[in-house]
Computed example of a mutant assay.
Amino acid sequence: MKDWSGVGEAYSASYSALCAGTFVAMREALGEPHGRSLVDVGAGDGTLAAMWTAEGWTVTACEPESTMRAVSRRRHPRIDPIDGTLPALPFADGAFDVAIANFVLSHVPSPRSAAAELRRVSRGAVVATTWTLSPSWFWAEITERAGIAPFGGPRLPDDEDFERTADGFGRMLQEAGLQRVEVTELDWTWSADPRALWRSVEGGVAGAGALYAGLDQVDRQRFRTAFDQVVDERSANSFLPLAHRAAVAVSAAR
């Protein structure tokens, strides 16, 4: 799996805004907080935790990566993220009314064990998301134009992986023991700042960052040239309109 160590600043400057695109769909699925508690597992730089807090939820942020927690504390000082990793969270059974995992279950060694752990710590709903059209399509265009092989990092073994579709995500969650799982797909266009995208590359974020880190100087220049060309072709008003799609799954209270 992709190593996310040390990427807090670069992630916060780039993909944090994209990943927050699921917030409205999750909020509508859960309704008003009415005094309920929520744990945001894999909370990253705290963007979503702060959004849930602003909506009136009692929020606990849980994030295993130290630089993510550091950025979260600086940006959202009222939220003190806890160090915790799926599938062994440091919480009692049924500690929260809701458990959230936004774009997390595809980044753990055992998605089913991780989903079962979300179920364990929630006495109510579990909400999880995954990409069905991820940012990788954009970087695949860059690598093809640069004549560089795309990122081919380690993948989940067949018995742990799941089909990256809305139906496949729902089946995986049901296999993990979640009940009455409803999955919808959300499409949106992210207006990305090219400078922030390039910072994510240099900062080692996601597959593109891992790929770039392993290139020699010549291939890095080819990669950058291809990036600049695609940005010039696709940009509108200095931003890149990039289409994305995510599956948003909500399981009923147990």
Rank of each mutant, 00 (worst) to 15 (best):
W57R: 02
W57C: 07
T58Q: 12
T60K: 02
T60P: 09
A61R: 05
P64M: 01
E65I: 14
S66E: 15
S66R: 14
T67L: 11
R73A: 15
H76K: 04
H76E: 09
H76W: 13
R78P: 09
R78H: 15
R78S: 15
I79R: 03
I82P: 06
I82A: 07
D83W: 05
T85L: 15
P87L: 04
P87S: 13
P87W: 12
L89E: 02
A92V: 06
D93A: 11
F96G: 11
D97P: 11
D97H: 09
D97N: 13
I100H: 10
N102H: 11
F103V: 15
H107L: 15
V108T: 10
V108R: 10
P109F: 02
R112C: 08
S113V: 03
A116Y: 04
A116E: 02
E117N: 10
E117Q: 11
R120P: 03
R120M: 11
V121D: 05
R123P: 10
R123T: 06
G124Q: 08
G124N: 03
V126T: 02
V127T: 10
W131Q: 00
T132M: 09
L133A: 06
S134R: 00
W137L: 15
W139E: 07
T143P: 02
E144G: 09
E144M: 03
R145V: 03
A146Y: 06
A146H: 03
G147Q: 04
G147W: 08
I148P: 01
P154D: 14
R155P: 00
R155I: 05
D158Q: 12
D158H: 04
D159G: 04
D159V: 09
D159W: 12
D159Y: 05
E160H: 06
D161T: 08
F162K: 01
